[in-house]
Computed example of a mutant assay.
Amino acid sequence: MTSADEGVLESTRVADWLRDAILDGVRAPGSRLIERDLAADFGVSRVPVRDALKILEVEGLVTLRPRTWAIVREFTAADMTDLDEVRSVLEPLAFRLAAERHRRDGLDELRRTLDEETISATAGDPIASRRAAADFHEQVTVLTENRLLGDLMQGMRSKLRWGLSQHDDLAHVAAQHQALFQAISERDGDRAEELALSHIDSSRREREAHMRAAKTAASSSAVHEGSSRRL
């Protein structure tokens, strides 16, 4: 393996870790990602860290500050509206094609991700459940056997996963995925497309409720902190 290959592997490893940290909520929106600190954490030079941050910038997860640091991006309501509009076109098609074209081994993999999501939701493990929910959507795209659709969905993968992380009722999401799996397994393209549209609308409402609750909690915390200072 050449030094160039090793550099690519290092930058991919750093990007994968940072992506999970951002999408799992470990790195909060607005927080700084400082090259020298990340390089020390990973035991690598600053070059693969810089390359990893560029990957995440393309995915829309960070905003770069040249020669200083990167900022974890905060998705706005407009960002998520844009995502919903694109999802409403691409995902119903993906679920329909998955129902019509899936192979047995691909369906088995979809079942595995759904089982993992359901078990994690029941166990109260939000990170594992949300990751599995994102994997479910990715595997549906694989089942379509449509390379162009796969490329388009790949371009919004991180944003979709972030949107799925903004859900509090994990059991409800798993139940919706169960219904979608049933339609796919029965090769019912019409039903799969209909359920996909309903799922997108439900996801939007869940996300908005989650964000309202988070905003209320932050306001209450700020008021409490201010009262404590005055005391």
Rank of each mutant, 00 (worst) to 15 (best):
residue 88 S to K: 11
residue 33 L to Y: 09
residue 113 T to H: 06
residue 30 G to I: 15
residue 128 A to Y: 04
residue 172 H to I: 05
residue 174 A to V: 06
residue 202 S to W: 03
residue 204 R to K: 12
residue 193 E to R: 04
residue 146 N to V: 07
residue 35 E to H: 05
residue 63 T to M: 08
residue 37 D to N: 01
residue 156 M to E: 05
residue 25 G to A: 14
residue 196 A to K: 02
residue 178 Q to A: 12
residue 218 A to S: 02
residue 174 A to T: 10
residue 24 D to Q: 15
residue 202 S to I: 02
residue 114 L to P: 00
residue 188 D to P: 02
residue 182 Q to A: 14
residue 142 V to A: 03
residue 177 H to G: 02
residue 145 E to A: 12
residue 41 D to T: 10
residue 202 S to Y: 01
residue 77 A to L: 06
residue 131 R to M: 10
residue 42 F to C: 09
residue 44 V to D: 14
residue 45 S to A: 13
residue 58 V to G: 00
residue 195 L to A: 10
residue 103 R to Y: 11
residue 35 E to S: 08
residue 194 E to R: 09
residue 191 R to H: 07
residue 221 S to H: 07
residue 107 L to V: 05
residue 103 R to I: 09
residue 217 A to D: 13
residue 74 E to F: 08
residue 86 V to K: 01
residue 49 V to F: 05
residue 2 T to V: 05
residue 182 Q to W: 08
residue 207 R to T: 15
residue 99 A to Y: 02
residue 88 S to W: 12
residue 136 F to D: 02
residue 103 R to L: 06
residue 19 R to L: 08
residue 104 R to S: 15
residue 21 A to T: 11
residue 15 A to L: 07
residue 93 L to T: 08
residue 228 S to M: 04
residue 164 L to S: 09
residue 75 F to W: 10
residue 153 M to W: 13
residue 33 L to T: 08
residue 26 V to L: 14
residue 150 G to C: 13
residue 114 L to K: 00
residue 20 D to R: 13
residue 33 L to E: 11
residue 153 M to D: 13
residue 147 R to G: 10
residue 161 R to H: 10
residue 90 L to V: 11
residue 135 D to I: 01
residue 212 R to S: 03
residue 102 H to M: 04
residue 11 S to L: 11
residue 151 D to R: 15
residue 142 V to E: 09
residue 224 H to W: 04
residue 214 A to W: 09
residue 214 A to K: 09
residue 79 D to I: 01
residue 130 R to M: 08
residue 17 W to I: 15
residue 142 V to Y: 02
residue 217 A to I: 10
residue 226 G to V: 01
residue 46 R to A: 12
residue 229 R to N: 01
residue 35 E to N: 13
residue 8 V to T: 14
residue 66 P to Y: 02
residue 63 T to H: 05
residue 207 R to H: 10
residue 148 L to A: 11
residue 8 V to K: 13
residue 156 M to K: 01
residue 76 T to I: 06
residue 24 D to C: 14
residue 124 G to Y: 08
residue 137 H to V: 12
residue 179 A to R: 15
residue 39 A to M: 13
residue 193 E to H: 06
residue 222 A to V: 04
residue 191 R to D: 14
residue 145 E to L: 04
residue 222 A to C: 01
residue 146 N to F: 04
residue 95 F to K: 02
residue 137 H to S: 07
residue 82 D to M: 06
residue 96 R to K: 07
residue 224 H to G: 03
residue 72 V to Y: 00
